[in-house]
Write a protein that binds this DNA or RNA. Structure first.
Length: 854
RNA sequence: GGGCGCGUAGCUCAGUGGGAGAGCGCUCGCUUCACACGCGAGAGGUCGCUGGUUCGAAACCAGCCGUGCCCACCA
């Protein structure tokens, strides 16, 4: 350590992450540590594809947690010498990004329609160029060791190539098809959205009962509906085939009130005879179930609600009304006609758009779909057989249940921002051409009036290719050969279906191998009050503010420590704990580095206390490492914390201070060794402070980021030393507690004698007892220690403490005797448990005897 | 309607068959020459309720109460 660095350590008594983090990160980037060569095989390499954040986004706590977990494993493996690649990039996020830019346009008083498609898309690209890199910069603040030189975007040229190739191949296999089908229409974005983008909310509507007269009869069928406005599109009335009440009417007709249309009365098992009157009006144009019933029975499909959410020309006099206006108007008309039999409040689940928040309008429209059964089959198999391991285990079942009931995926979106569907229609001969690149002319008629499909693909269609498209697929790139399949994926459970499942399917279908070996589904960090962290609720906590305030290491430690298999509330205390740990490491390092003799960092085992520390250290390394490897981040970091605070700082450093100040070589070597290993152990989770401290370490031969990760040295495990020192520590604590409870002045050194073998020197020093046996009569016992009378002792307090201890012991002895007096316990409990109980009883009995009768 | 969780110290959470733990907060004592973002000590819990299994239950089983999330085509 040169003089300047030494002065730096001497002067600053606190760890200040602010400037250090930026400097250390710059050193990593300069060193090129995050940019591996594309060499080696995937089995020996380590690679991760980051869940790509939306370009519209800013780093939120979900990213920060997810990033902390990935970085911990990426750094661990990089330190282990594996060729390690962490790919990052952003997602074009069709709807979300288009919405942001449209909002900007609105503020200028313009619309995207005024601009036209081409200009609008250019405008979104400009927006992306200006703001799209913000989130990547924010990942750097977190310390994420991604390969920033291999950044990808789901709309960059190579990616488009991959998407088009996939579309074409799926089309050629017959999986992708175009059909008039009922979709979830979002009037807010005026686009179809997939089932997964729909969220159901509890809503209280009115349940109307409307009388439909049976033709040529005076009977009426009363039907219940929450959507009378769709009755204009009714094309049948259905009853359950088993329902005897209506058996005679099946095959006859009703008359649709207000419209006068003849509606066949059909029988379909979907109808629940128990619900309402057991009669269901069928509106194939505006209800998902009715649509399916309609297709089964060959019913007409009438559309009365347009894509704008307004009633169309089919609605006659109601044309132009909004859905809710139409509902009121129609209900009023039905009331006038005396056919509105009943109206009741009714609470049920109603689909809403996850995107716009508007109520979904099921509409029939011409869309592109992808059938999923064939793609799902192998994706089910690999998870069932644990080739792809989903952890925690419960999410494996959730994945499989969903996959086994998979439905066709509506992949087209009526947007402008995204991958425009690679389908062209010939204006001359009506040929449909699906191609990976825009065709020059129609292959059927050589016509050149080709028009590309207006729609774009669902954003998740391109995200599904992420793990391999980012590595250069479909080209046979060195990256693909070296890093695919990737090693693992961390994700929030909300995108298990939306993204993870689809990556598995596409990975198997295209590059021909699973996209990752392990999927770890992490918990969700909620706001401090237990609500969802969300921008719109105002409950979000900004990771960048936390980093500014307490440092990236503190935030990373905090997030990992609070993470769990269940959702948890954000805990400032855990982040604070991380900041405290960084400061503790810094100060422990100061103590060691400024005082150690000039020796080589190495374990020295001549002395008991050193063997104890080394054994504790190596066990901690083994345990923390094992927890990191099994995604148990929370216990990993908390265990490391406990070692640093407890074993290392509270005990070992206090025990060896005299030796350290003397510049003794054994303790210097051991401390340098322990520090080196602790910094390495903590580097994956707290990279900045550990890298910074490493820069002061005499053993340093390069950056810690590529220093070998410590591997537990079992030859240093020493159970005897651990037991022996643990006992001495326990004795020290009892002595300190006794002093405190008896109210001995803090500085007073109490004379005492001790039974049996003399304990280590530190017991007396750290408890401020002098075991030299001079003084008067013993006045109290603490374990094997006889405290002698002295001026510092208050006789009354000593007596009170003695009495209290006696009571405690009597209670313990009673408990032990009761337990050992239980015949069932003695005969059925394992022998060692019984023995342990006997031992405890004997110890308590002895302590009581030593205290005297009082 | 189905599925999955959760209910442990004032707060946030660990603990999954042998004497209740951590961090924060609280109380008391320490300006001890690494750190007052510190050190030492302590108080605080019939482990949601009721039954059951067991020599032994916070943990396993059943029921109930409370609470959260996911999935779902009963109008």
């Amino acid at each position: 350590m040169d003089a300047a660095k030494r002065a730096q350590l001497e002067q600053n008594t606190r760890y200040e992450p602010g400037d250090i983090e930026a400097r250390v990160f710059a050193e990593w980037m300069e060193g090129g540590y995050f940019h591996p060569d594309a060499t080696g095989a995937p089995e020996e390499n380590f690679s991760v594809a980051i869940p790509p954040p939306n370009v519209t986004g800013a780093l939120h706590m979900g990213h920060a947690l997810n990033g902390s977990m990935q970085d911990a494993l990426v750094r661990l493996n990089r330190m282990r010498g594996r060729n390690t690649l962490w790919i990052l990039g952003t997602d074009h996020a069709g709807i979300a990004t288009q919405a942001v830019v449209e909002k900007e346009l609105r503020a200028e008083g313009r619309t995207r329609q005024e601009l036209g498609r081409e200009t609008f898309v250019e405008r979104v690209w400009e927006w992306k160029e200006e703001y799209g890199s913000r989130i990547v910069e924010q990942y750097k603040r977190l310390g994420a060791s991604c390969d920033y030189e291999r950044e990808r975007f789901t709309l960059d040229a190579g990616y488009v190539k991959a998407v088009y190739k996939v579309f074409k191949q799926l089309y050629d296999k017959g999986y992708i098809y175009r059909d008039n089908y009922m979709v979830n229409w979002d009037p807010g974005t005026r686009s179809a959205i997939s089932d997964l983008e729909v969220e159901n909310r509890e809503v209280t509507d009115s349940l109307f009962s409307i009388d439909y007269p049976v033709q040529g009869s005076d009977r009426v069928l009363s039907v219940a509906t929450v959507r009378p406005e769709t009755m204009l599109a009714d094309t049948a009335v259905a009853v359950n085939p088993e329902d005897e009440r209506y058996a005679d009417l099946v095959g006859q007709f009703c008359v649709l009130p207000l419209v006068g249309r003849k509606l066949p009365i059909i029988a379909d098992a979907y109808v629940d005879p128990e619900f309402g009157t057991g009669v269901l009006k069928i509106t194939p144009g505006h209800d998902m179930n009715d649509f399916e019933i309609g297709r089964r029975h060959g019913l007409d499909e009438i559309t009365v609600i347009g894509p704008d959410g307004l009633l169309n020309g089919e609605a006659g006099e109601f044309e132009g009304l909004s859905v809710s206006e139409a509902q009121r108007a129609i209900a009023a008309r039905l009331r006038d006609k005396g056919v509105l039999r009943d109206e009741q409040p009714y609470t049920h689940a109603v689909p809403f758009s996850h995107r716009s928040g508007e109520r979904i309008e099921p509409l029939i429209s011409l869309q592109w779909f992808c059938r999923m059964e064939e793609l799902a089959a192998p994706a089910i198999k690999v998870v069932e057989e644990d080739e792809v391991r989903i952890r925690p285990e419960q999410w494996k079942r959730v994945y499989l249940n969903w996959m086994k009931e998979i439905r066709p995926w509506c992949v087209s979106r009526q947007l402008w921002w995204g991958h425009q569907i690679p389908v062209w229609y010939c204006g001359d001969c009506e040929e449909t051409i699906v191609a990976e690149v825009a065709p020059e002319k129609c292959p059927a008629c050589d016509g050149t009036t080709l028009v590309q499909d207006e729609d774009v693909l669902d954003t998740w269609f391109s995200s599904a290719l992420w793990p391999f498209a980012t590595l250069g697929w479909p080209d046979d790139t060195p990256e693909l050969r070296a890093f695919y399949p990737t090693s693992f994926l961390t994700t929030a459970r909300e995108i298990l279906f939306l993204w993870v499942a689809r990556m598995v399917m596409m990975g198997i279908e295209f590059p021909g191998d699973i996209p990752f070996r392990d999927v770890y589904v992490h918990s969700v960090i909620q706001a401090r009050d237990g609500r969802r962290m969300s921008k719109s609720l105002g409950t979000g906590i900004d990771p960048l503010e936390e980093i500014d305030e307490r440092g990236a290491d503190a935030l990373r430690f905090g997030l990992l420590a609070m993470s769990s298999t269940q959702d948890v509330r954000y805990s400032d205390a855990k982040v604070e704990q991380g900041a405290d740990l960084a400061n503790k490491l810094y100060n422990a390092s100061r103590l060691i580095l400024l005082n150690a003799a000039e020796v080589e960092s190495a374990p020295r085992t001549a002395r008991l206390e050193d063997r104890w520390l080394l054994s504790r250290l190596e066990r901690t390394i083994a345990s923390v490492t094992e927890k990191l490897e099994t995604y148990d981040f929370s216990h990993a970091v908390q265990e490391a914390y406990a070692f640093v605070y407890g074993d290392l700082c509270d005990w070992y450093l206090e025990i060896v201070k005299p030796r350290l100040y003397e510049g003794e070589e054994d303790v210097s070597a051991t401390l340098l060794y322990a520090l080196e290993r602790v910094l390495g152990l903590l580097h994956p989770t707290m990279p900045f402070v550990t890298e910074e401290l490493w820069s002061f370490h005499p053993a340093r031969d390069g950056h810690l980021v590529v220093h070998p990760f410590p591997s537990a040295d079992e030859s240093l495990f020493d159970p005897d030393a651990e037991d022996e020192v643990a006992e001495e520590i326990a004795l020290t604590r009892s002595l300190r507690a006794w002093r405190d409870l008896v109210g001995v002045p803090a500085k007073a050194v109490l004379p005492a004698v001790i039974d049996g073998m003399a304990p280590s020197e530190f017991v007396g020093r750290l408890s401020r007892f002098a075991f030299d046996g001079v003084g008067s009569d013993p006045v109290a016992s603490v374990g094997p220690v006889r405290v002698l009378a002295s001026d510092a002792l208050d006789a009354g307090a000593v007596e009170a403490r003695l009495g209290k201890r006696r009571e405690e012991l009597l209670a313990e002895i009673e408990r032990g005797e009761r337990k050992l007096g239980n015949k069932g316990f003695v005969s059925k409990a394992p022998g060692e448990v019984v023995e342990e109980e006997r031992g405890k009883l004997a110890r308590y009995q002895k302590e009581l005897d030593d205290l005297g009768a009082g």
